[in-house]
């Protein structure tokens, strides 16, 4: 294991769905790195392939979906072709997962304490009492009031926000190096959402875990992420430091996306809108997938798929920057 270097390297990763009309490419040759402790936001509209990217990394893709190509390296070792048993062990200990609906991650039949203790004992060599002690600490860390009392409650006795805190505790049980959080706050009210994001951010910093935060909400990204990857039609349109992507987007899609978000304090009577909608997987246009909706499209956009080029501190996949950037 190298000390420096990225925690996670994704190279030309594709996710393919086998259908009776042939394979559909839902994630199309994406590449990115993740440094230890970094929070990478993966943002995009529904169908952009952002959740599938997370699922592919955790090895939880289900038929008919599969990894169609490329490599995923975690701490320098390939994990995209690991046998399921090894992947399962890695997933508990080194990679944690948080999903949108906390109810699906918690077993309704067991108390949260039992679920935490079992997970802790599966991954760490601790006795029952020690594991329970650790579970109590974790619950306190994620901000659950009166953990000694709450630990023996069942998931349905918690509110949505509190449940998501339990799920975060569960994901952090074994001190993983990487946490994949797939829309962790989408089901929650805004005031709760802010609390959960703060907990997630604080804990990952304290435990030294890197986070891939998958979301459709630019606001969440702007609040939380260090770097952002903007996905469109299964490809990364733009990736770079959050401040750069959010405040000075380079790709016409990111620019349109940012412009379409209403912001309090601006007096616009009309929101910038991107005409049309994201293509279905069955008819992704040739060349740049965004070109039919792009205000800056040129003739060659329909012919060649642009490769990500370094622009500023990030990379942008657009012919506008093919000349070596601005």
């Amino acid at each position: 294991m190298k000390q420096s270097g990225p925690l996670l390297e994704v190279r030309d990763l594709s996710v393919v769905f086998d259908t009776r009309r042939g394979p559909l490419t839902a994630v199309d040759r994406i590449s990115f790195d993740l440094s230890p402790g970094e929070i990478l936001g993966v943002v995009g509209e529904s169908g952009a392939g952002k959740s599938l990217t997370g699922t592919a990394i955790t090895g939880l893709l289900e038929r008919p979906g599969r990894i169609g190509g490329g490599e995923i390296r975690f701490e320098g070792n390939r994990i995209d072709n690991l046998p399921p048993e090894q992947m399962r062990r890695l997933r508990g200990r080194r990679i944690g997962a948080i999903f949108q609906d906390p109810l699906t991650s918690l077993n309704p039949l067991f108390t949260v304490g039992r679920q935490l203790v079992e997970t802790i004992q599966t991954h760490l060599d601790l006795g029952r009492e020690q594991a329970r002690q650790r579970a109590l600490e974790l619950l306190a860390e994620v901000g659950i009031p009166a953990p000694e009392k709450r630990i023996d409650h069942y998931p349905h006795q918690f509110s949505g926000g509190m449940r998501q805190r339990v799920v975060i505790a569960l994901a952090l049980c074994a001190n993983p190096k990487l946490v994949i959080a797939d829309e962790p706050t989408t089901a929650l009210d805004v005031s709760i959402q802010a609390q959960i994001l703060a907990v997630l951010k604080k804990l990952c910093r304290e435990h030294g875990a890197a986070v891939i935060l998958v979301t459709h909400d630019m606001g969440v990204i702007a609040e939380t992420a260090d770097r952002v990857a903007v996905m469109y039609s299964g490809r990364i349109a733009e990736i770079g430091p959050a401040a750069q992507v959010v405040k000075a987007p380079r790709h016409p899609y990111t620019e349109g996306l940012m412009g379409s978000i209403p912001v309090i304090g601006t007096g616009a009577d009309r929101l910038t809108q991107i005409e049309g909608s994201m293509p279905r997987l069955t008819d992704i246009p040739a060349g740049c997938a965004f070109h039919p909706r792009c205000p800056c499209a040129r003739a060659d956009c329909a012919a060649v798929r642009p490769e990500p080029r370094p622009v500023g501190d990030g990379k942008v996949a657009c012919v506008l920057y093919d000349g070596g950037g601005i």
Binding site: S191, A194, A242, K247
Partner: peptide, 22 residues
């Protein structure tokens, strides 16, 4: 509270303390 908790895409208030309670 509501105005204060909405995610802010201008990134001006990144490290503020969220309001507690449900």
């Amino acid at each position: 509270l509501l105005l204060d908790t909405i995610p802010d895409i201008t990134m001006a208030r990144r490290d503020r303390e969220p309001v507690a309670g449900e």
